[in-house]
Amino acid sequence: MNIFRLAGDMTHLASVLVLLLKIHTIKSCAGVSLKTQELYAIVFATRYLDILTSFVSIYNTLMKLIFLGSSFSIVWYMKYHKTVRRTYDRDQDTFRHWFLMLPCLLLALLIHEKFTFFEVLWTFSLYLEAVAILPQLVLLQRTRNIDNLTGQYIFLLGGYRGFYILNWIYRYFTEPHYVHWITWIAGLVQTLLYADFFYYYFLSWKNNKKLQLPA
């Protein structure tokens, strides 16, 4: 464990807690894409299949449970909670996210480190995580401005993978044989997808204006 990875995990944890808190407190999920949340639930489900078979540390298992629990409860809130589900604007959140999953699955079947069931699904979860934010970013473009909590959620979510990139650089230089091109490239693509959001988020923060994304 290094400071970059810990910062990444804490930032990731903060992002899901901000979202869960927002939905639980104000009983609203306006501006949040259910499609992205469903994709994240699938990312964690396919990423942590080994939660029962391979034990790394208490921290590792605890964080996996938190990420699984929070992502599935966010989906539950948005789909089934009597009050929250009414605030979900389904006619704006129309990204065909199943079209994201198929290319990720095909790519995982083609490019992976080992051709085993777990490894292919784990690689699938990496590719899917890289593009999972797209429905949310598309929804933001449509609804134009976003409330602070959703903005913070996306900012933290994008930031965590940036910390992971620093972690991968640190581990590359400090651990022999630590080379994982698939993880690195997927992580880089993921972070780059947030780049334009970060740009507008920073502008709104600098000019102390409400975050407005261009049409």
Binding site: R5, D9, H12, R47, D50, S54, V56, S57, N60, M63, K64, F67, W122, Y164, N167, H177, T183
Partner: peptide
């Protein structure tokens, strides 16, 4: 071959 490295990252 490097030992079967565990996936220690989240």
């Amino acid at each position: 071959r490097p030992s079967q490295i565990k996936k220690d990252e989240l």
